[in-house]
Computed example of a mutant assay.
Amino acid sequence: MQPSDLRIALVTGNYNYVRDGANQALNRLVEYLLRQGAQVRIYSPTIPEPAFAATGELISVPSVAIPFRPEYRWPLALTPRIRRDLAEFAPNILHIASPDLVSHRAVSWARGHGIPAIASVHTRFETYLAYYHLELLEPAVRLILRRLYRRCDALVAPAESMAAVLRAQRMNRYISIWTRGVDRAQFNPERRDMAWRRANDIADDELVVAFLGRVVMEKALDVFADAIDALAERGVHHHVLVIGEGPARPWFEQRLPGAVFLGEQTGDDLARALASSDVLFNPSITEAFGNVTLEAMACGLPVVAAEATGTTSIVRGGETGLLVEPGDSDAFADALEAYATDPAMRARHGAAGLAYAETMDWDRINSAVLDAYVRAIARRERRERLTGRTAAPTAI
Rank of each mutant, 00 (worst) to 15 (best):
T266V: 10
I93H: 07
I177S: 06
V240K: 00
A54S: 06
A335T: 11
G321P: 14
P302L: 08
L58T: 07
L386G: 14
T55L: 00
R19E: 03
R35A: 12
P343S: 05
I377N: 01
N92R: 06
V208S: 07
G353V: 06
E160V: 12
I285W: 05
T311Q: 13
A372K: 01
G388T: 09
V18S: 05
A357W: 06
Q39T: 13
S120W: 09
P48C: 10
I144H: 11
A391N: 04
F187I: 10
T312W: 12
V61F: 04
V165F: 08
C152R: 06
L148H: 05
L129I: 03
R150F: 09
R151N: 11
A90F: 00
A296Q: 00
P3V: 02
E253A: 14
A308W: 02
P189V: 03
Y17E: 12
M217L: 11
V102R: 09
H104Y: 15
R348A: 14
P343D: 06
P393A: 12
F211E: 03
F224V: 06
A140G: 14
A163K: 09
L6T: 10
I175T: 03
D330V: 14
L262W: 00
E160Q: 15
A90T: 11
A159L: 09
P247G: 04
D183R: 04
V292T: 15
R19T: 13
I177Q: 09
R41H: 09
D371T: 13
L370N: 08
E307T: 13
A248P: 02
D183S: 05
E206F: 03
F224G: 00
R147G: 14
A164P: 10
M297T: 08
S98E: 12
E287L: 02
Y339M: 12
D226S: 13
R147D: 07
G114L: 04
R364M: 12
A130Q: 15
H133W: 11
D269E: 11
G112N: 12
E325P: 10
V315R: 00
A119H: 13
A248Y: 03
G317N: 15
S277P: 03
A298E: 12
A54V: 02
L26H: 10
V107H: 09
A248I: 00
E319R: 15
I202S: 03
D363E: 14
